[in-house]
Design a protein around this nucleic acid. Structure first.
Lengths: 203, 203
DNA sequence: GTCTATAGGTTGATAGAC
DNA sequence: GTCTATCAACCTATAGAC
């Protein structure tokens, strides 16, 4: 009996596959309770499977955590298709900023969790490198777009496209980090809109 | 006998007080190996004291970790006296950026470690709030300086001082986070000098 | 593929002598 | 204040039945 009478006790739809359920449960625990509480027991209980099932699917704890990394970062088509919309440069920057912030809010707890252990950090850095997820990719993309706009005369000619791109990315990163780490006690800070209004003056 | 024959087996000067030795050892372990490996046993071994001594001084593990937070963040006189030097605004921004980056590099492993557990995160957020260490303090300070410079006509009058201050702080934060989290694989990114050159155009 | 049961190890924390 | 000794709890991982 897998669990036909027990309603799997999670809020979302109960994924039929045990492996998926474990991954989803692990990601939830990681985000809500931190990696310190990401034990095989907790994961198994929340996923509605047994403890041993976790080890059957992922080998060991490190394997599970790595799988969670991949699972959390893969649905990442950042800024996809934005360039094709022929938007005002300032508007494209705003939308990119929003997409980046959303991505970082999801990814940060996972990235941060990897910092708790040297092995995990190395494994995570390797993963980011392998899958071309590092910040240079964003700089490349946004910077490339800005260079094209410069060629078209829609952006100030002596703007440093890569430096500007990095400023946008870093602002989104920091905004996400504040929300994740300090909770919601940020009313005293300038809004993202105000920050973007200031940044986009550089264009 | 505290430890006159045993040379305390750490590299720095051997602090006579056991409490200080424990704090120093804990901070080292936290930075080098992450909070997951911050056990009472490891700390005691590195500090050259016994396991129970840790509990005598700090009550429990959470107490030790909180003490480490305070110990790691207290020597923080950020941007102190910079305003008095009567520098060019752009130069003051550069120096503030450097000071902020240095601070974040030291503080980030500690702040990040607190994210691994909800209780620790709450306790850390409370500590930051209590000791007025949040980002709004930096915004207040840098923003206030910029307002004064605006009044003196040395900075563009329609600059949003707080938004600009936040951009500077966020760039420093992100630069520090990259160095801490991704190691030293950042040659492809624009330098901080290039970023600052771009940002300070807004002044 | 999923379960129960358990071995084996590590940790947080306490008791009590010195 | 510091130590040794120890406990109870928890965790990872495996073995073997279904």
């Amino acid at each position: 009996m897998t669990a036909t009478e027990e309603p799997k006790r999670r809020r979302g739809r109960p994924p039929s596959g045990g492996r998926e359920a474990i991954l989803a449960a692990a990601l939830e625990i990681l985000r809500e309770q931190g990696i310190a509480n990401l034990t095989s027991r907790e994961v198994a209980a929340r996923a509605g499977v047994s403890d041993a099932s976790v080890y059957y699917h992922f080998g060991d704890r490190a394997g599970l955590i790595q799988a969670v990394f991949a699972h959390a970062m893969s649905p990442l088509e950042l800024m996809a298709g934005l360039e094709d919309l022929d938007l005002e440069p300032a508007e494209l920057i705003r939308r990119s900023f929003a997409a980046l912030t959303e991505f970082f809010i999801k990814a940060l707890p996972v990235i941060g969790a990897a910092q708790t252990d040297p092995e995990l950090r190395a494994s995570m850095a390797a993963y980011i490198d392998q899958n071309n997820l590092g910040p240079h990719k964003g700089v490349e993309r946004l910077g490339g777009y800005l260079r094209a706009q410069q060629a078209a005369g829609r952006v100030r000619a002596d703007l440093d496209p890569d430096a500007f791109a990095l400023v946008v990315i870093d602002s989104a990163f920091a905004a996400a980090a504040r929300r994740v780490m300090l909770g919601h006690k940020l009313e005293l800070l300038p809004s993202s809109e105000a920050v973007l209004a200031e940044i986009t003056r550089l264009l």
